[in-house]
């Protein structure tokens, strides 16, 4: 029971990170029907930007308050990652919009290879580790000498995820931009006819996706304290799994899917085999797509002749 509770806490934390990345996949897929293969690497780039920002703030500028530093790191990472993803959309995907379906996918795979190698070339192939940013934990209770803890890091991740999801939900459901997004999702031509700037809306979708990935990247860096250029692929695929599990195109689905994937992964590691934890996530992906292709919250995809 106590192991289970602890894994539940760990799983939700990991799942929040996956959920934040998954929103990026699901939004982009919803609006332009493309699996943005480079999104996992955008997440990795954001973790590196956060790393640079953190070192800059603490060592160059000498900010000692961790809360302030973390907040600033988050803002900086969101800003720069948004810029990166905006440019990627502009350069690599926009010219291929309306082209044949494989072209953007290949372009995205190329972008993914480019991004991870760009980071490897500019920052070096070694793992980058930093001293823990946040220390300390609450001991919830102890049973059979096994303390169930909730660390401050985890609490911060929960809190930041919840706040950002609330902002994001407001953005999508209440603002003009959100309405434009949902309109483009349904019918781009029609949306353009009623005066929605489709290009701008799609750009903004990439910007929002990147901002959320940057939150995930910052949280990832804070949680694990280590990041490497190759860290984009596996979290990317898992987040995509989360998006598929929740029903691609569905925003609450992405978050729920993320948390489910996080839980499956931690539970699998705790009770079965840590070596095969990625197999668990990939199997969930395959099984979902085969038996429940519309996911938990998605609309079934009906093909008309």
């Amino acid at each position: 029971m106590e192991v289970f509770l602890q894994q539940l806490i760990n799983g939700i934390t990991l799942g929040s990170i996956y959920g934040l990345i998954a929103i990026g996949y699901t939004m982009v897929f919803g609006i332009i029907g493309m699996v943005n293969f480079a999104h996992g690497d955008v997440f990795m780039v954001s973790a590196f930007i956060a790393l640079v920002a953190f070192l800059l703030l603490t060592s160059f500028l000498g900010i000692s308050s961790i809360a302030l530093a973390l907040f600033l790191v988050l803002i900086v990472a969101m800003l720069f990652t948004s810029l990166v993803n905006w440019t990627i959309e502009r350069l690599a995907y926009r010219p291929l919009r309306g082209s044949f379906r494989l072209a953007p996918l290949i372009s995205a795979i190329g972008m993914s290879i480019f991004l991870s190698n760009f980071v490897q070339v500019t920052q070096g192939p070694r793992n980058k580790s930093i001293p823990p940013m946040v220390q300390g934990e609450f001991v919830l209770f102890t049973k059979n000498d096994y303390p169930v803890t909730l660390s401050f890091k985890q609490l911060i991740i929960w809190f930041v995820t919840a706040v950002l999801l609330a902002c994001f939900w407001y953005l999508v459901s209440k603002t003009r931009l959100g309405r434009a997004q949902r309109a483009c999702e349904q019918d781009q031509k029609m949306a353009a006819l009623v005066g929605v700037d489709v290009d701008r809306t799609i750009s903004m979708t990439f910007v929002i996706a990147a901002a959320l990935a940057a939150v995930a990247g910052t949280m990832y860096l804070m949680y694990y304290g280590v990041v490497s250029f190759a860290d984009g692929f596996v979290p990317g695929v898992k987040a995509f799994t989360a998006a598929v599990l929740g029903g691609i195109g569905s925003l609450p689905g992405a978050v729920v899917g993320g948390i489910l994937i996080g839980l499956i992964e931690t539970m699998w590691s705790a009770y079965f085999s840590i070596d095969y934890k990625d197999v668990a996530a990939f199997s969930v992906l395959a099984i979902t797509l085969i038996f429940l292709p519309q996911g938990l919250f998605g609309r079934p995809d009906v093909e008309k002749v």
Binding site: A92, L96, I109, G110, M111, I113, N117
Partner: peptide, 11 residues
């Protein structure tokens, strides 16, 4: 790095 970039460009 160039391989990825070339993929995007050719596409």
């Amino acid at each position: 790095l160039l391989f990825g970039f070339a993929m995007v460009l050719i596409m």
